[in-house]
Design a binder for these strands. Structure first.
Lengths: 351, 351
DNA sequence: GTGAAAGCGCTAACAC
DNA sequence: GTGTTAGCGCTTTCAC
């Protein structure tokens, strides 16, 4: 058993409150007493119990970031944005996985008020749980769904417009037969990106395929398999718009294996501009958005904790690289500047 | 203020202990009482306080994974390994960053016994803090340093042998002038990999460069800059062994920009076999190891919590792809099988 | 099967 | 400045 504040008090020959004050740097403790206390605490290897302090103060000074998949390449920059703001408030950040349904750590932490606020990305936490636990002392920000409720805020990106821009660009480059490589149909992001795809086709008088031919579950392997299946059908499109970059990368792999050239035979545009996108060959054209800023703004909303919902929508930006054929959009060099400008939107949009 | 167990008891017309038993599914509560309690709890939107429960039970049933950099591409598989074992013990996992020195969340959580055990990767937590807080009720596993102490365990990989294998392979392919692209000199992994590099040169009667020409801080941008500097010096090697894959990828980028061909002009081998390695062009030759297994084994050690230190050393494996020139090592197709075999070492090695 | 009560290790109001 | 004390919201022992 490790030492408690009582042990320290006994050893230093003072009251527990004195120990508490001394160790929390209260100004009203004399230097001599403080030294005595510190010495005793060190001698006993005393470490205050966070659980006790949290119970007493009724807050943990930590906020939680809940993600579907801790390892995803997509999240890292979001995490950094969150981390930055959390640290600037002198708070702690814990990241944990929503994997495991009702018994996941995320569920427990949400229910048990382990954290003072939460940022949720991914669909594993139900709308109803979020609405139930959100409160003045427990604000929640959701990142990839639309959800209205007291003390629930949304940070979104212009998914529909991004999808539109991607497909309109392909059309401008002369592609006419553009397939949509879909993520999970239930995913909000996916649905919106698909709407943008449809709008671009319609506005250019192109037929919208009756049904989505390819489903890739937002995964590299999923994109690969979906394209393999498509290739077997022998009905080849001249371009593919993938609902995220990972699937686009899988698609490219499958096309290469089949001896098809990207972009000459089939052009590809992804979505998200993950770190990998410029590194693969051909470099992936995609729709970029500031993931860092999504995280940072979400975190600011947590600390603001207003009852009325805020809905922040951040812009997306076509980034044309090799995989779509002709670099008619933003050049890669310009991209850094664009990201910098995206970083300063901060507009608060109400629905 | 949200409802407490007392409120629930009052509303249900029972004692607090009854509420506690009922909600924790104690068998000695009658179905009727349980129903009453559950109804009251729901009506009040009661959520038990994790802090109070932890304080009372003197454990949190969560373990902490502390990383330098939450977003790194390297960590994701380690995290998955940890996650899997933690979940199988019905425990919670929190991941948090060691960034921020003394005031980082990681420091606080470690000191305040927020978690029941810790896995530490990265150098931001000092040896002395680890030794101080490790105890029977708080086992710690470190992943990338050697550290002996009660209730402190190590999971390592054969870094030195990996470095040797990488360089020996380059030599076998006819390269004679091999530079080392170094990570931070203080990093344990880096030092060991460098030792392997030296041994390979010495055993093949090749001169060891007097000083390390390139330092890339384990980052892509660092590798890029280091190679840019090297190129300026006009003394080109015919191969580079990078202490990790990210730097290797940066190196390739710099070489391409300079109009040099990889592997024809300069061959490259990295270390870690991150997800990206097979996807870039040329596909990166590297030293692979099972990151998932590192995480999984580390977590098992946390749950075992022996006083005597365990030192587990997992094997590495050369994975020859295009960037080193000739595919004389393990083919990519075979790699999955090898990884599978690596997954089942589990040998416990004592020093 | 249920209730009363002690206490986990702290903080902070209050007394001196 | 320092000590006394009352909880924070639970779990669990012990009576009944």
């Amino acid at each position: 058993m490790s030492a408690t504040i009582k042990d320290v008090a006994k050893m230093a020959g003072v009251a527990v409150s004195t120990v508490s004050y001394a160790l929390n740097n209260s100004p009203k403790i004399s230097e001599e007493t403080r030294r005595k206390v510190v010495r005793a605490a060190e001698a006993l290897n005393f470490r205050p119990s966070g659980a006790a302090r949290n119970l007493k103060k009724r807050k943990s000074e930590t906020i939680g970031l809940f993600l579907n998949d801790l390892g995803g390449p997509f999240y890292s920059q979001v995490i950094e944005g969150v981390q930055e703001i959390v640290a600037s408030h002198d708070y702690n950040l814990i990241v944990c996985s929503t994997y495991g349904g009702e018994n996941s750590s995320a569920h427990r932490f949400l229910r048990e008020k382990f954290v003072d606020g939460a940022i949720i990305m991914g669909t594993a936490i139900s709308d109803s749980l979020i609405l139930q636990v959100a409160s003045e002392s427990f604000p929640i920000v959701v990142l990839d769904r639309e959800l209205r409720g007291d003390y629930v805020h949304n940070v979104l990106i212009t998914n529909e417009q991004g999808g539109y821009d991607a497909v309109a660009h392909l059309i401008k480059l002369g592609r006419r037969n553009i397939e949509f490589l879909s993520g999970p149909s239930a995913a909000f992001d996916n649905t919106q990106r698909y709407e943008g795809y449809k709008r671009a086709l319609l506005e250019h008088d192109l037929p919208v395929p009756k049904r989505i031919a390819m489903h890739g579950r937002f995964l590299e392997a999923g994109g690969y398999q979906a394209v393999k299946l498509l290739l077997a059908s022998k009905r080849l499109p001249d371009a593919i718009f993938a609902a995220n970059d990972e699937m686009a990368i899988g698609a490219i792999r499958a096309l290469h294996e089949a001896g098809l050239r990207v972009p000459e035979d089939i052009a590809i545009v992804g979505f998200d501009n993950i770190n990998l996108a410029p590194l693969i060959r051909p470099a992936l054209s995609t729709i970029g958005h500031s993931k860092f800023e999504v995280g940072a703004i979400a975190t600011q909303l947590v600390f603001n904790a207003r009852k009325e919902e805020d809905v922040i929508i951040l812009p997306t930006q076509l980034i044309a690289r090799q995989s779509c054929g002709f670099s008619g959009g933003v050049s890669e060099q310009d991209h850094d500047n664009l990201v910098a400008s995206i970083l300063h939107v901060g507009g608060r949009t109400k629905h």
